[in-house]
Design a protein around this nucleic acid. Structure first.
Lengths: 134, 134
DNA sequence: CTAAACTCCGTACTTGAGTACAGAGTCAAG
DNA sequence: CTTGACTCTGTACTCAAGTACGGAGTTTAG
């Protein structure tokens, strides 16, 4: 058997799917609970998944990879159903702005630390520690 | 009474200290549990704090503001006790590198999103949504 | 046929930095 | 002296995105 069902698409148990997707079995069920993954058809008492499920997990991971949360990803998936491009663009735009802010904040931190390090190198009293004394 | 104790330093109950430091009462106790804030002297059964406590909270917030976790801040506070400048520098340096990585990652996300947005603006099939279909 | 491997469900735990709350005790002003 | 504001301790909850686990049921390879 080459793990194909009658429709010719691959047929996975939860463990196979998890392996194929590179995630944990528990993660698959977690996504299902969160409504990100459609209920699989069940043969007997075990879940049976197809390639659509595998693709969906891959999508979720890609979306996460570019900074969408699971809630946002769920939104995206709904937009997909609605074919609502405008909202998808707005979501992406908001996300870009959000990331921009986070970068600004991190750069601020970095400059503060770099300043501390630089002034530390020169004089005796360590300014990193001196922070502690107001 | 102007809220000074015999040593001439201000004397705070936990609520006053929290107000003065701009944090929550629970946060003060939390810092205490975490060992970031020295045990205050207690008059009767209530905690009594001094300016040193206020300054320490301010330090903790500053350290957080530039990206130190509470654990790292505790470390910094210990270094302060040891006057160990070298380690403080190393800690700061590690933190800078860490922040650099996070910035790189965020920038990667941002570019991916910007690319999606740009290609979306042009053609019909929305690539943000198309992500969902592999 | 049997034993290992897999799956089921539900619940609890994880990290980090707090926040919320219950129920009891205490303090200070009027 | 009372009343209201404050504080005490200890525990549980928050968010996000899972991970871990217990105990039972199911499947499949040998």
């Amino acid at each position: 058997m080459d793990a194909k069902n009658h429709a010719g698409t691959a047929d996975y148990t939860i463990g196979k799917l998890a392996d194929a997707a590179g995630v944990n079995v528990e993660t698959v069920r977690y996504y299902e609970r969160r409504g990100l993954l459609a209920q699989p058809t069940s043969q007997g008492s075990y879940r049976r998944y197809g390639d659509t499920h595998l693709e969906r997990i891959a999508f979720i991971r890609r979306a996460q990879g570019i900074g969408f949360t699971l809630d946002e990803t769920a939104e995206l998936l709904q937009l997909n159903d609605m074919a609502d491009h405008l909202q998808a663009r707005q979501l992406a735009q908001a996300k870009i702005a959000d990331i921009e802010q986070r970068i600004q904040h991190l750069q601020g931190m970095q400059h503060a630390l770099q300043h501390l390090l630089k002034t530390c190198r020169m004089g005796k009293p360590c300014p990193i520690i001196a922070m502690a004394l107001k």
